[in-house]
Amino acid sequence: MILIVLAAVCLASVPLTGGSLKRLAQIRVRWVWLGPVAVLVQTVLVTIAPGGSHQLHALIHIGTYVLVGAFLWANRRLPGVPVISVGTFLNGLAITVNGGVMPASARAEKLAGLALGKGFHNSAVLAHPHLLWFGDIIPVPWPLPNVLSVGDCIIYAGLLVLLHRVCRRPEAEPAISLA
């Protein structure tokens, strides 16, 4: 939920700073269906059907990052997308080297007040995590308790770059002097 709220805040920052989200119609976004498919699959994995084979869940979870990577590659020339790609790469790397699960800091989860139930979790405290620095180590407390990674922060910085580069008001033409 916090990711959606953060995205909404980024979107709201555009009109609040004089930009117009309508200008997003001017860019050509390729393979628009990849994002919704990736989110849908992740939601099924974590929320709807977290039970069953952990290995299968982990493999499919990594697969969703392949979908995201394909989208980012197809849209790499859009402003901000290279920044988003760096964050996504860091998240994907941490998830891949940990067998399909994002390593989380136990301390961060405790500070955020999270308690995991049974079933597959795409982010979890691991006994022997790799690259924990790229894992979920940033606690976000109430009202939307969660844990974030460095990659997440980079992703949202990239989103802000994209939105504000595309949606800002075109700069006024310089006055032509007839003198």
Binding site: M1, I4, L11, F71, G87, N146, V147
Partner: peptide, 30 residues
């Protein structure tokens, strides 16, 4: 034409936001 323009803007928002959310899905869906 205006509806098409709004549709393109909305689809761009949906595509970008969902990719950003999926990119950060190392989190729980709390």
């Amino acid at each position: 034409v205006k509806k098409f323009y709004l549709y393109r803007a909305a689809s761009a928002v949906a595509a970008i936001v969902t990719v950003v959310v999926a990119s950060g899905a190392g989190q729980k869906w709390g």
